[in-house]
Design a protein around this nucleic acid. Structure first.
Lengths: 236, 236
DNA sequence: CGCCTTGTGTACGCTAGCGTGCCGACGCTT
DNA sequence: AAGCGTCGGCACGCTAGCGTACACAAGGCG
């Protein structure tokens, strides 16, 4: 029981809820282990469950014409997956891919919607979270268009580190290429550049962040902007 | 009075509402004329009014680092401006620029939120609209990244034509360049290509769509996908 | 009428990133 | 220990689009 309580507090959207809401949440959620590469939703799937990651994290990916892919959002312990249920829409336009293994709290869609009716604080918080997601989507569109691979890679590594809470990330260049919508060779060049600058070290499927402040410097301002927006809207 | 009624039906989000909701809406809205180039919201502005365009339309633009700009959404008679109020957030992350002159219905933010409490059909419809906007934002990010200027320009002209309901659009290459986040010269080349293919004709600030089916062919599939999504979510 | 602002055509060299393909190195499996 | 699949480095020519700049044309205005 205390482990669930602890787990609950481990997702930022659920932290410091009124105890009545937290109890109601705990009563209907279960804890699941997400494994790397698991696909939680396919585009146009009906959402059957929502997820609140604890130490896992999930990439949300647009698929264009069956071949081009691009990550447009990420959900870790600061967020959730299945946010469109807040709008009473049980569908998602994005592919949800588990990108960091770990635990998540899961709730059945119907129970979740029922819960929201009696959990005004959580409901309001999720609406704010949705606003943040929308803003970040809009910013990402511009970031992806205007910024260079190296800056975007730095940003992506920082965002991932925040969610993984580890300096060591298990990632291949191939995978990063898919996330950023670029060539594998493009990632290699950017990674070499970041390594040469002493910001990261990497080796066959593992990337280690050495100099986080330096990496923030190397990333486009979108990273800090994103963090600032989240804090402003959700931490007030 | 009948003119307001007519105007009301002229925005698709308001069409065929239960008469009680429509009456309530009409009681608190007023009709305003929007002029070309008018800025309705600045990023991080507090939203004081929401707008339901009738024959006007509005570009929503991300501003990155004070200099790079990119249109990420458009609101015409099929949509509204100020949608984040549906989430009880009276703020917008985007610049809202009147891009097609014309009429719009305007409501004070507080009245609008009050109205939503007693207008379940409208409320539900706006939540669906918000879902469409989110999906389109995600798709746009990928479209902007993967598709070439010519395809994007074709798509943009089609979207604009839908909202302007005219074959003749008052647009300069300069303006289009800002919308698509590219060079003015890049637009000129794309426009020449489309004109050579007999799809459009243009002349000093005016673009005329000659062959709409051909233009749909020339545009990326994102155009028809967007339309299909709107229809699926809002017309069911 | 001529001026001047605005819009468009075009040309220059340049850069980021593409598609592709190949090689070598790592490390897991047998 | 050998073999093989995966991963990363690198190189090739190529393209889209960039920044810039300049010239010309259209059309509003004095």
């Amino acid at each position: 029981m205390t482990s669930i309580l602890h787990a609950c507090a481990a997702n930022q959207l659920l932290a410091e809820l009124p105890s009545a809401e937290q109890d109601a949440f705990m009563a209907i959620c279960d804890t699941v282990q997400l494994t790397f590469g698991e696909v939680l939703f396919q585009p146009t799937d009906t959402i059957t469950h929502v997820y609140f990651p604890i130490d896992s994290f999930i990439s949300q990916i647009v698929i264009l014409n069956m071949d081009s892919r691009l990550e447009v959002a990420m959900a870790g312990r600061e967020g959730m997956l299945g946010i469109s249920l807040v709008l009473d829409i049980a569908e998602t336009p994005l592919l949800a891919l588990v990108q960091g293994e770990g635990l998540a709290l899961r709730i059945n869609a119907a129970s979740f919607q029922q819960l929201l009716l009696n959990a005004p604080v959580l409901h309001q918080r999720l609406k704010r979270y949705l606003y943040v997601v929308i803003s970040q989507l809009a910013n990402s569109a511009a970031c992806i268009h205007f910024h260079r691979i190296e800056e975007r890679l730095a940003r992506w590594l920082l965002m991932t580190q925040d969610r993984a809470k580890s300096d060591s990330l298990q990632l291949t260049h191939e995978f990063l290429a898919m996330m950023l919508g670029v060539r594998r060779a493009g990632i290699t060049l950017a990674a070499i550049a970041l390594q040469t600058r002493g910001l990261i070290r990497y080796h066959r499927g593992e990337i280690i962040i050495i100099d986080r402040p330096g990496l923030i410097e190397a990333a486009c301002k979108c990273y800090t902007d994103d963090c600032a927006l989240y804090t402003k809207v959700l931490m007030l």
